[in-house]
């Protein structure tokens, strides 16, 4: 298995931007150090022989949790909209959107 690239400052800045977090230079420094150690720890698994272990999609030994397709009443609209910062014509009112839906 090839050595993964160590986590760097640019990676943290990228992830922060994706999460809409604005970090100061000092914070960037601090989180790069902390996150690098977390990722390193996960890297310990590379030292183990996992050849015979199938990939795990979920830690619980449970599959197929399903419900029947039967409607049930949801929440009252007035109540829901009252909890929102703003609303108009039965809809949530949100700031101007730049660009389109992904």
């Amino acid at each position: 298995m090839s050595e993964p690239k160590p986590l760097g400052r640019d990676d943290v800045a990228h992830v922060a931007r994706l999460a809409r977090l604005s970090l100061s230079e000092a914070e960037l420094e601090m989180f790069t150090d902390q996150l690098a150690r977390v990722v390193d720890h996960a890297g310990d698994i590379a030292a183990l022989d996992v050849e015979s272990v199938p990939p795990t999609a979920h830690p619980l030994p449970v599959r197929n949790v399903l419900r029947p397709d039967e409607p049930r009443p949801g929440l009252d609209r007035d109540e829901v909209l009252a909890a929102a910062p703003d609303s108009e014509a039965g809809r949530f009112k949100v700031p101007r959107i730049v660009g389109e839906a992904p």
Partner: peptide
């Protein structure tokens, strides 16, 4: 879209 003042959802 680009000239919109706000959006309703």
């Amino acid at each position: 879209i680009h000239a919109a003042d706000y959006a309703l959802v």
